[in-house]
Each structure stands twice: as C-alpha cells, then as structure tokens.
C-alpha cells in the first residue's frame, strides 16, 4: 500500500513555539510513522491546530525541529509539496469547484496542464461532488465546501494530509461524508494527521492518539489503549468530559 518513497516518518524533536512570552507548544518530541491514522486530541487551547501548522511548515518553531525522513525540513519546497492541509474554515478561491483543484495541481507542478482536469474530476467524484464541478466554489454549502477542500488536498496525492477540525460546525450527514472521504484517502495511501474536538469521530477514525494539554504532549498511544486506559489524569478527565485546563 505504501509502495512509493515517502517523506515519513515525521519526527518532532523538542518542538517548541512561543509567542509574546507565552510558550504555546512546549518541547514536544514524537515520531509519527507512515501507516495508521493519527488523531491529535486535547482541550481547547491545548495547541492542536498550532501543532499541525508547525508540522506542515506554515510557521517556524521557536526551538526544536520538525524532521521529515530524518531531515530538518522547514522551508523546503520538495518536502512541502508532498504535504497538504485542510483548514477548519477552508479558503476556496473565487472560481469553479473544478478550477480550485486544477489551480492547486498547477501550483504543485507534478502534472502537466492537460492531465490536471481529469485528476480534478476524479477527486471531485471521490467526494461525491462531480455534479458541481462547474459551479462557483463560493456558492456551495458548508459541507460541500469542506468536501471540496478535502478533494483539492487529496487530488495532490500527498504523502501526508493534515486536517484541522474538518467537521467543525457541520451537520451529522455532512460529517459522515467527510469521514468517508478521509477513510478513502487513507486507503489510497496518504498518511492522515488530524485534529478533532469530536470524541466520537476520534473513536471512529483514530489508529493512534496524540493527547495535548497546555502545549505539552501528555500521551502518544494506540487509540484503543487511549480510550480504554488513559495514563494521565488529564486524559481521563478529558474523556469523562470534565473541563481540563
């Protein structure tokens, strides 16, 4: 399944990020392998989104490093082009759904101009949006916009796909469509690293869990173990639904 060369594993080495004198990500070290779906969990303000942005190279760490296949990769285009990210509030360009995807493909530069539309249509079909290909992206519904954002990321066939709260503020039907899309992308060979605040979703999708609290990595365990036998009191409280700070 993971036949081609990959930039994984992802290694976080004492990763730290501070802003305005406040340490928001505090010395996180972890190695995330190529298989399995990784879900980052934690209470609000734990630093989940920030961690994804640091891993994706959108922001530079204050200290420590993000390594892909062993190399410090911040700012490296070749590594960046093998990742994709779906944001909590996707930014779709003011053009058709199809053009949103071909635009991303042209930036990636892996496919020739003539091959892009076919790839884009495949991606749209895979999230059930083939019928809106020519429609302006901005007039799609919230769920459709999020699926389009996922299709756009998936069309790039990245080694790693980051998803930041992909189903926040969507209705259950839309959530299910998105979870299906995530499983399909995983099945096609892309490593999934995502955050969610929806514990049900985490149980459905996670193979392993990174549990963050106040910028620290509290647990990095297989999903079954995390949900059954959390090791830290913070994780236990979080799973009970208590407010953890």
């Amino acid at each position: 399944m993971h036949a081609r060369a990959t930039i994984l594993p992802l290694t976080l080495d004492r990763l730290t990020y501070a802003r305005g004198g406040e340490t928001l990500i505090d010395g996180i070290s972890a190695t995330i392998g190529p298989s399995s779906r990784t879900v980052v969990l934690g209470p609000n303000g734990a630093g989940k989104s920030l961690l994804l942005r640091l891993c994706h190279g959108l922001i530079a760490p204050t200290n420590g490093a993000v390594r892909w296949a062993g190399a410090d990769a911040f700012g490296r285009q070749d590594v960046a082009r093998r990742q994709a990210m779906v944001f909590q509030r996707p930014v779709l360009l003011r053009r058709s759904a199809l053009a949103n995807i071909t635009y991303a493909l042209s930036l990636q530069g892996r496919l020739g101009r003539s091959e892009r539309p076919a790839r884009a249509r495949d991606a749209l079909a895979s999230v059930g949006l083939a019928h809106v290909a020519e429609r302006p992206a901005r007039v799609l519904s919230g769920g459709e916009q999020q699926r389009l954002a996922i299709a756009r990321a998936a069309a790039l066939k990245p080694d790693v796909l980051f998803l930041d709260e992909p189903t926040a503020s969507l209705d259950p039907g839309a959530c299910r469509a998105i979870e299906d899309a995530i499983r399909a992308i995983d099945a096609a060979g892309t490593k999934i690293i995502m955050t969610t605040h929806d514990l049900g979703q985490a149980r459905r999708l996670a193979d392993e869990v990174l549990f963050l609290c106040r910028g620290r990595l509290m647990e990095h365990t297989p999903a079954g173990e995390f949900f059954e036998r959390p090791r830290t009191p913070q994780a236990a409280a979080f799973l009970r639904g208590d407010i953890v700070g």
């Binding site: 994706h56 994709a84 944001f87 930014v91 360009l93 991303a104 930036l107």
Partner: peptide, 26 residues
C-alpha cells in the same frame, strides 16, 4: 490575511500569490 495559510499550504509563494489575489479580489 484570509488566504495566506491556504495559499502557502498549496505551495504558492508571495509572488505567485499576487495574480491569484488580484483575481479573487476582482
């Protein structure tokens, strides 16, 4: 401010972002 993360994620440098932003701000 709205587009920067998305465009950076897609691999558009600032130079490449100029025509995209102009078109979307049309």
């Amino acid at each position: 401010t709205e587009y920067s993360e998305q465009l950076t994620s897609l691999g558009a440098g600032r130079l490449r972002a100029v025509p995209t932003l102009l078109w979307d701000a049309r």
